[in-house]
Design a protein around this nucleic acid. Structure first.
Lengths: 196, 196, 196, 196
DNA sequence: CATGAATGAGCCTTCATTCAT
DNA sequence: TATGAATGAAGGCTCATTCAT
């Protein structure tokens, strides 16, 4: 009995480990090549059989959604912290941009809005709703302090968000050799564009 | 002889019409749903058989490239004209943005950078090289007149380009109900971001 | 009226010319590459449209059969003449072999027994029945004169025929650089094999 | 653990059985009708889905090559043994002919020279090079002992080979009701044809 | 009659998903 | 529970055949 409990516990640990490896593998591959990766590739990279992948995730779309959601949760947290760590709206905005760029580099394909397309019905919306709300809030706050020029915060935020997509982060980071530089460049531009 | 010439001429007209319908269908479908559309869908939408599509375009990739190239040529022309029609760098930039937004709405998926991915070899690069050069020139000119702040024009142009993608145009246009408004919004933002 | 008659006559001549060109083209292509040639290739080589080919030959199989039959008729004639032109059975046999080899070189794929397979139902049997009868007769005659060893002439002829196929002719001719040499080689061998 | 090992072993046996059935099916169909058989026919005859066929053989050509290679290996072995089992050149030659005829009956289309055509690149050449070398050697040996008449052994062997093709074997065997008789007939003829 | 564009059935191949072991 | 072989629907492409001009 004891040994069976042992075995069960160990097995449960293996199960969790397997699931983690699947998620890691999927995350890496989806980030690299988007939705075109084959399920058996994910399985192979995770070192498990396809069946094991399907045991946890009923379909490719579900796997994609799960990976995507995990990436979002991760990123969301970083964004909140970044926003909280700065005082002025301008500084908050810059911090958010930097945080977003930092996360983007490893998740380009995943964070794309199009990612959500993969699971149209019961899907989550990616980080963009969160990010949009955050940026709009900061812009509103900045307008209240007179630091930013007037205008519909939601609209301005939507525009700023266009500069915060993962592909954008990727491309600009390649031009400046580093995501810090890219984030700074964009932050300068955005702050100038919003300045009163 | 005369009747033969007649027939040939008429036939050639029909053929051209068919080809145009194929291109239109492909353009519409690719723009909507990217490269995932099925060839038989294109054929069906054009009102022809698959064979007819393959008669002009040896493969799906060729069709995609053709549609893409056509869209680019079209857009490029509009961009040149827009740039030429304005005097000051700021006005040029605004005109370019408006022109790009106008074209983007019907070609979202096609103008995407990713479009080029579909035909890796011997493929054209989309309008982005052209657009980038154009914007960088304008920015350089603006810096020369002291209208724009200093900074690497190529880099600044790259950043501005991120706001000129077809998906961006699409999304912002939906928020403001109209591509004119979206283009103005972006132009205001960009000009403010670049102002000296 | 007269001119119409003129036109009709001329037209009929054109028609015949077209048909001949189609047959020539088909003969050349089928001989080179067997049944895998495309109908449009035949048409192109003949300098006509596909429709014209189909006007004369209801299907690819019919065209193949026609070409094949023509080749057979041609060859058959040559074989009869060859047999008639020699006195002794041995000389006849040699003459037949030479004649067959001469014709084979331009009709390899066509003369194949497999050619008949293409049109299983209403098809002709190629030259092989004719050739077999001819050879069997000659062998029988040779046995009657004591020049050849005894044995079922039909069976011996069947065996000899295996050395007279177009592919065989082709291959041996390539080894000896010339169909004359190949035919002689085979004739020597066959005559020795049949000698009393 | 034990049960897992059991399962794995049993599964591996099933897998092998499936592969064998695929090969058998392919061998039978290719032998009957050449390269024109459809992959789904092979699959159906093997009692599996198409996917299963493609799991082992990346393409139709690969399958064809595999079947062909297997047939060749099989035949080659038999030929070597036949040659080794006889003492005099004449006996060797007869043994080789018999062996070749025996194998041919079930592999007509596969052993054809044309088989190699299916996979132009990296392909094997069928048994014919082997068989040719073998026969040429035997002929050379026979000439050395004075049993066979003089002449280029390679050339003579090429001619003899024309009587050893699978189609020939098939046809002659049908005439004499049995491959033994056919082989004897051919052997008698060949030995007479080569006799000094 | 000639033409060749159009047709579409059918083939090869891929890959998400299932299920026997 | 893990495995990965098996499945088969579906997509890209070809080519014999038809038919409007």
């Amino acid at each position: 009995m004891a040994s069976k409990g042992e075995g069960a516990r160990r097995q449960r640990r293996d199960v969790r480990r397997n699931m983690e490896r699947v998620l890691e593998a999927a995350q890496a591959l989806f980030a690299e090549r988007g939705a075109e990766v084959k399920m058996c590739e994910v399985a192979a990279r995770a070192g498990v059989g396809v069946g094991t992948v399907y045991r946890r995730f009923p379909s490719k779309e579900h796997l994609f959604a799960a990976v995507s959601a995990a990436a979002c949760a991760d990123t969301s947290l970083g964004l909140e912290q970044a926003a909280a760590s700065a005082a002025s709206p301008a500084a908050k905005l810059r911090a958010v941009i930097v945080a977003q760029y930092r996360h983007s580099l490893h998740q380009a394909a995943l964070l794309e809005r199009s990612a959500a397309d993969a699971l149209p019905h019961e899907s989550h919306q990616g980080i963009y709703p969160t990010l949009h709300a955050l940026v709009a809030d900061v812009i509103g706050a900045g307008q209240a302090t007179g630091a930013f020029r007037p205008g519909d915060p939601a609209l301005l935020a939507a525009m700023v968000l266009e500069l915060l997509g993962p592909r954008t982060a990727l491309r600009l980071s390649q031009l400046v050799e580093g995501c810090e530089g890219a984030a700074d460049l964009v932050a300068d531009f955005v702050l100038a564009g919003l300045a009163a």
